[in-house]
Design a protein around this nucleic acid. Structure first.
Length: 260
DNA sequence: AACTGAGGCAACCGCCCATAC
DNA sequence: TGTATGGGCGGTTGCCTCAGT
């Protein structure tokens, strides 16, 4: 994929795609893919003058209007490229559950990742998940599934990867049947559902360390997110989920299956 | 080999807000 | 205080690649 990207850049730079020059209220500006020359000009400009003053750069150096985006999303030396790691996925899901589509704010917590990259990840991976389940990506059930199914699943995978790399290290938490979350699952699920959950590392806990835990609680007919102290919140969350909707585990089951 | 559809991602667009004048 | 300007941000679009047929 990386090679493809390089080829793509080279191809774009070769002028295979029509470039466009347009006039708007900011003057004559060029649109279209970036050329290698423009990248060099932009890099040199930032090295000399620092970033900022993007429009001035675009006008004086004749580079693309979107100098800022090009620099921030592509040329900046600390930009990380490649797949989003498990840890980064967990972070994105967690922060999005708290802040919504505040991509730039989320990106601040992922060094080297741009808001554009995170946004793309969300749209191509997470939204896709919602589509497969025929539900809205912003729906309550999907957000709950993200938090109580997908995130623990990613956490579990992260743990097992870490375990493989460092077999003698102590696990942060256990996925065996004696854990409080698993006991909660046993209490509220059918055996087959429990098996599915267990097989896929579905545990219930909060990964949030820097803020109070967020979990759903009953509130008359609907339930909503409220802050509660961290700790044995897992069982409480699970109980709330199950009391609220008997079908939640069916949904979670489907959810886990679509992650395969 | 050619075609097609889906996925991934860079680029584009428009709005909002802060700041300068 | 009102207006102009520019940067930042989030939503959307469109191109390229690749897998499947």
């Amino acid at each position: 994929m990386e090679a493809n990207k390089k080829n793509k850049v080279k191809k774009l730079g070769s002028g295979s795609i029509e470039e466009e020059e347009v006039e708007n209220d900011k003057g004559m500006i060029r649109k279209g893919p970036w050329s290698v020359e423009e990248d060099v000009i932009l890099s040199n400009y930032v090295a000399t003058h620092g970033d900022g003053r993007w429009n001035a750069l675009a006008r004086s150096a004749g580079t693309n209007l979107y100098s800022m985006l090009r620099w921030l999303n592509y040329l900046r030396p600390d930009v990380r490229r490649g797949n989003i790691t498990l840890h980064e996925q967990i972070t994105i899901l967690d922060l999005h559950s708290r802040w919504g589509n505040r991509w730039s704010k989320i990106a601040e917590h992922l060094p080297g990742r741009t808001d554009n990259e995170i946004k793309n990840y969300w749209r191509t991976r997470v939204s896709k998940q919602a589509r497969q389940l025929n539900c809205d990506v912003n729906s309550k059930i999907f957000r709950d599934a993200l938090r109580y199914v997908w995130m623990p699943l990613l956490q579990e995978r992260l743990q097992s990867n870490s375990q493989m790399e460092h077999p003698n290290a102590t696990q942060a938490y256990s996925s065996d049947s004696s854990s409080s979350a698993s006991l909660g699952i046993q209490q509220f699920c059918s055996e087959s559902d429990q098996q599915v959950m267990s097989n896929h590392g579905v545990l219930v806990h909060s990964i949030v360390e820097d803020e109070p835990g967020i979990c759903p609680s009953m509130n008359n007919e609907t339930f909503e997110y409220t802050n509660i102290p961290l700790g044995d919140s897992g069982d409480l969350m699970l109980e709330s989920l199950c009391n609220n909707d008997d079908n939640i585990y069916g949904f979670c089951h489907d959810f886990v299956m679509t992650l395969e």
